[in-house]
């Protein structure tokens, strides 16, 4: 298991390849990559702020939960902070499991946790004006479907 919170860009292909070489008993690897969107076409850059002392603890907890719940062989989370331009990669996760269902479900669970419970905040800067990204109700709803099972452990 690895959780990396970093400012510098990373190579998704190299990370997936490295993750795959360490997997021994899994028949499935699922990966997700998050990219800076530019829906309006006017986005200059995004600033991602986080709470360093809490971020590492929270991400490790979510990853351990995912491994435990979905019987993953391994999981990887990389999440950037700082200033990012449109189309830059924000984050990635990878999950490895004997069968694809658990690898997909583990990845979905990890993403739902990251969206609504990991202490990151995004600010979009367009034409010199900053706007904090607001959470979507859908994200909280999707997390809720897992929380039914984990209510006492999610924090």
């Amino acid at each position: 298991m690895a959780v990396c919170i970093q400012e510098k860009p990373f190579d998704v292909s190299a990370e997936i390849s490295n993750f795959g070489t360490k997997v021994e008993s899994s028949g499935a690897i699922v990966t997700f990559t998050g990219i800076v969107r530019n829906d309006s076409g006017a986005l200059d850059h995004m600033i991602i702020e986080h709470y360093p002392a809490m971020t590492q603890i929270a991400l490790q907890k979510f990853t351990e939960l995912a491994i435990d719940r979905f019987e993953l062989e391994d999981a990887l989370v990389i999440h950037r902070h700082g200033t990012l331009k449109p189309k830059e990669i924000i984050m990635m996760i990878a999950t490895a499991a004997p069968h694809r269902q658990d690898a997909f479900a583990g990845a979905q669970f990890l993403m739902d946790c990251l969206k609504s419970r990991a202490p990151f905040w995004k600010k979009e800067i367009s034409e010199g004006l900053g706007k904090w990204v607001e959470p979507r109700a859908k994200d909280e709803f999707e997390l809720g479907s897992w929380v039914d099972n984990f209510n006492s452990r999610m924090g």
């Binding site: 990251l114 202490p119 990151f120």
Partner: peptide, 23 residues
């Protein structure tokens, strides 16, 4: 992660922030 009713006994650090938007 806590809430506004959480006791502050032997607490060192409290953080306030908006709903998170990771991922």
């Amino acid at each position: 992660l806590s809430d506004f009713t959480t006791p502050l006994i032997n607490v060192c650090e409290v953080a306030f922030f908006p709903p998170m938007t990771g991922g």
